[in-house]
Simulated assay, not measured.
Amino acid sequence: MRALVYDPTTAHGVRFDEIDEPRPGPSEVLIRVEAASLNFGELAFAERQLRPGEVFGKDASGVVVQAAADGSGPAEGTRVVSFAGTGGWAQLRAADTANVAVVPDSIDLGEAAAVPAAGVTALQAVRRLGSVLGRRVLVTGASGGVGRFAVQLAAQAGAHVIASVGAPERAEGLEKLGAAEILTGSALPDAPVYGVLDNVGGRLLSGAFALLEPGGVLLSIGWASREPDVLHLEEARMRGGHGRLEPFAVSAPFAADTSDLLHLLEQGRLDPQIGWRTPWDQAEQAVEALLTRRIQGKAVLDLV
């Protein structure tokens, strides 16, 4: 079958290859993939996550062509979306039923494919902050996939959301998603914040940490800047800060959280923010656009 695999000798680390079809384990369904989404982190840091020849892809949606042998999960013919570390950018994917969610008929499979990795990351991060009702929450890298989900979910939880983006043009649509304030470049809020969902790292992380109010928390989610993370603790002390910094990573299983997000999508309360959608034959262009920050939100590839 055809798949997009990691190849460090290519310009962007991606190439098509013919590989063997996956063999599902007892608790895995076999999915005929119809759409897959790209995530900045899995491309920018592929050398840390994949071996040469391994199939890319955390997010993939499609139709179950073989149900799990142990009887768990959806039946053959069910429309689903899956979230796993690898294997999604291929014509067939084997996925554990604990990480597979049924896609309602009213939701396009391309939109569903945009949800799992970015959406679940944002959902779990907002939940980690605890109650944000009436509190100030800064989202850095707010124009990306995780960022745009985080802005929506934090705003719906009652937060005063401050969205930070690299350039003014990348702020398009964020107010409509729930951002009460928008900052660009290295600008920081002019008052303390309770929570920070940081997708950028580097100087922004350091500056934001110093702005935490007592009891506040900064979750380090991503490292889009690729700058060293240097904390100026004395600055935080001078501001009287008593906040904490936590590295953040999503926790499996993912099926329930993905289902919650699909339910919001079905109700019209969540927008997957697809900024680029193309047939997967044009995957290289999509990868380049994502890595050069020309995509706002998510990039989706259609396999059929």
Rank of each mutant, 00 (worst) to 15 (best):
A3V: 08
R148P: 03
V103P: 00
D302R: 14
A299C: 07
L262P: 08
I221V: 08
A117L: 15
G71E: 06
A75P: 10
L4I: 15
G240C: 01
E169L: 12
L303A: 09
G134E: 01
E246Y: 11
E235V: 13
R79Q: 02
P52K: 04
G77F: 03
P26I: 05
A112P: 02
D229G: 09
A283D: 02
V63Y: 00
V151Q: 01
G144Y: 02
A208N: 08
A98W: 11
R269Q: 14
G158Q: 02
E47N: 11
G88T: 13
S72E: 01
Q124T: 04
Q91E: 15
A299N: 07
G268S: 03
Y194D: 11
Q296G: 14
G144L: 01
V250Y: 00
H232K: 13
L188K: 05
A118Q: 08
G13V: 00
A252K: 11
Y6D: 08
H160E: 15
Q91H: 14
Q285S: 14
Q156A: 15
R127I: 09
L43E: 03
A187Q: 14
E213T: 11
G195Q: 04
I274T: 09
L92H: 10
G73R: 06
D108W: 09
L123T: 07
L270T: 04
D17W: 10
T9W: 09
P247T: 05
P189E: 10
A125P: 05
R79N: 02
L174A: 08
A44L: 05
S27W: 08
V217K: 06
P116N: 07
P189R: 09
R32T: 03
L30C: 06
I19V: 15
I295Q: 05
E227W: 07
I182Y: 07
Q91N: 13
R293N: 13
P189T: 11
A95P: 07
P247Y: 10
P52C: 06
V100G: 13
Q152K: 04
Q156N: 10
R23L: 13
V287Q: 02
Q282V: 09
D70Y: 02
Q282D: 14
L4V: 14
I107Y: 12
R51H: 12
G77M: 01
T9Q: 13
E235K: 14
G185T: 03
D105F: 10
R170E: 04
V55M: 03
A180R: 14
G134R: 09
D96F: 02
A191K: 04
A159Y: 06
V14D: 03
P26Q: 08
A159Q: 03
A75F: 06
L183A: 07
A289P: 06
S61L: 05
A94M: 03
V5N: 03
G119I: 03
E54K: 12
R237Y: 12
V304I: 10
E54Q: 15
A171E: 11
T78A: 14
G62F: 00
V103G: 01
H242C: 12
R203A: 15
E28G: 04
V146F: 00
H263W: 09
G77L: 00
Q296R: 15
P214N: 03
V55S: 04
V29E: 07
R23P: 08
